[in-house]
Simulated assay, not measured.
Amino acid sequence: MKLPYAVDEVLGGLRLRLRHTGRAVRRTAAGPALVRGVTAGFAVVAMLLALPRPVAASPWAWGVVVVLAAAVGLAPRSPVVTVVVLLIAVAWLAATLAYGEEPTLWRLIAVAATLYPVHTGAALAAVLPYDAVVAAGVLRRWAVQTAAVLGAGVAFAVGGVLLAARVGGWSALVAPIVGLLAVAALAVMLAWLVRRT
């Protein structure tokens, strides 16, 4: 039985795509594979931290999380990264609003701290060809810069929460000014970090 022309054309396209994918996998170098793997790993952790506890405990959720994280690692140039980041935000909102889970500071910081390497890792992986030979210095600089921004962000968040607890009795004029100064200091520090790289 002969297949219709359109089906035969689709199957031919799929075979061609599989051949190209196989060739790309064989040519993949260690550096780009490491960046993509680290990005996918952080995506898994961010999703599991953001999901409501009952959902995160189910085996099917783990399967969906691994598939989505693998998609981020395999297609860092695609809209998949944006979709996964938005799904993490929706999962966080569902956990706190629909499931009534306590939005603890450590969990919020952990979700934000794992989202940042997903974003920067996907950006780096998007510009690295599969077969690129990446110098160790490039990966080291990326890791140091990511760690510095995360450290500064976590310190800023914790400091802001502690400051907010102390300024509860301050006037309605002083507290926003202190907050604006803190945000300006963070912006200056991040601009300094960007200029250094």
Rank of each mutant, 00 (worst) to 15 (best):
Y116F: 14
A56G: 02
L105D: 07
V35P: 03
D131M: 05
A191C: 03
V84T: 12
L51W: 02
G37V: 07
A175Q: 09
A185T: 12
G159D: 11
A6F: 14
V154Y: 00
P59I: 02
A40E: 05
L128M: 05
D8V: 03
A95T: 04
V84A: 03
L124C: 04
R53C: 07
L3V: 04
W92H: 13
R17W: 14
P117E: 09
R77C: 05
W92N: 14
G41N: 12
R26Q: 13
A157T: 10
A30W: 15
A191D: 10
V188M: 15
R166E: 12
Y116N: 09
P103K: 04
G31D: 03
L34Q: 08
W142L: 01
S171V: 06
V25K: 05
A185D: 13
V134I: 05
L18R: 10
R195G: 15
R17C: 13
V144M: 09
L87C: 02
S171A: 08
V25M: 13
T28H: 11
V133C: 03
M1G: 08
E9M: 13
P117A: 06
L34T: 03
G13W: 00
G169Y: 09
L68M: 09
A57N: 05
V45I: 02
V7F: 04
V174E: 01
G37P: 04
G12S: 07
